[in-house]
């Protein structure tokens, strides 16, 4: 367990991450001003996904976790996406 000491993340890294997250929020809010039609939601979700990925890998330290955990986290998102897609097999083709 002692080698974990090397995984301490410095304060500046967290500050940079926060700046990126706030910038993405600003873009997301600003984009609603433009009428992009169906793309509005797509863009909002895309930005949200980038933010989520950033939080998970930096704040939650998934970067320095085991391969198993990385696979598990991606698997969870994959399964949830599949569930949504498969549910829409019903609603889209009625």
């Amino acid at each position: 367990m002692k080698n974990k000491e090397s995984h301490i993340t410095g304060y500046p890294t967290y500050a940079y991450v926060l700046i990126i997250l706030l910038a993405l929020t600003t873009i997301s809010v600003a984009a609603t001003g433009y009428h992009l039609g169906a793309y509005t939601v797509a863009l909002a979700l895309l930005i949200a996904s980038i933010k989520v990925a950033t939080v998970i890998s930096y704040f939650m330290h998934l970067r320095s976790e085991s391969l198993f955990l990385k696979v598990a986290v991606s698997g969870v998102f994959l399964i949830f996406t599949l569930v949504i897609i498969i549910t829409f097999f019903d609603y889209l083709f009625r």
Binding site: T32, T40, A44, A48
Partner: peptide
């Protein structure tokens, strides 16, 4: 607790655009 707190944040990151920004 930090992990839990980040999760609360993650949920909000999705809730915010879906509820407030779809207009």
């Amino acid at each position: 607790s930090g992990l839990y707190w980040h999760l609360v944040d993650l949920i909000w990151i999705f809730l915010f655009p879906l509820l407030y920004l779809v207009s």
